[in-house]
Design a protein around this nucleic acid. Structure first.
Lengths: 109, 109
DNA sequence: ACCACTATTCAGTGTTACTATGTACCAGTA
DNA sequence: TACTGGTACATAGTAACACTGAATAGTGGT
């Protein structure tokens, strides 16, 4: 999609994935497919997996290995209490930024 | 303000500054002060100056040195045609991201 | 002479997403 | 048996960007 999105995703992709997990548990391959479906056409698989490992190490998610009918076992991630707290902080930060951007767009300086 | 904002600003700060310049020409010190005023409390001066040099090298702005009543001369930046084009692309990218984020926030997965 | 404010610059660091590749498991088919 | 394709995860190296911290420099007031 271009470099602009790539840079903008820094910081927000993490929130996006946490938001997805707040709805229901999911695993990497599934998340990647969903993102592509939503128009994030060139998010690399490696990016998602790296991100998942990161949020696991920070303690935002619980992990469970679940056997798959097709292929190797899935690592299913679910948001825990700490993750929900962090997600709420993410939304506050996002709101702050989005409000200022909208003001700027509407001709404000 | 925390690391979350810092990461989220990657890619958007550039758009913010371009949007500011689309209103009227401005110089670094002024932009930094304005940002701090808007609640971006810990955007480093160095960050803004580096960004200005970057967008200058990409050809998005025209630069003019203007003597200041107090202190060294100002480098006044104004958005040129190429910059306006890039800014529009920025808004499209931002909209794309913002829409998906809002959907996610409203419980959609 | 010294300090505060204005104004710009730059070297070094950390974080994050991308590229590219490798590993591995399973089902269908020639 | 060997091959292909879809599923699923991992990782080393790279690029981009914002931050830290410091340096430089001009002006006015004490």
């Amino acid at each position: 999609m271009g470099k602009q999105v790539t840079e903008m995703l820094k910081g927000t992709l993490e929130g996006i994935v946490l938001a997805i997990l707040s709805g229901r548990p999911a695993y990497g391959y599934e998340i990647t497919a969903w993102l592509r479906d939503q128009g994030f056409s060139d998010i690399a698989e490696g990016t998602v997996y790296a991100l998942l490992i990161r949020i696991e190490q920070r303690g935002f998610v619980d992990v469970e290995k679940v056997p798959s009918e097709k292929g190797p076992p899935r690592k299913v991630y679910s948001l825990n209490a700490q993750g929900r707290e962090y997600l709420e902080e993410f939304w506050r930060t996002w709101s702050f930024l989005a409000e200022r951007l909208e003001q700027l767009r509407k001709g404000g300086r």
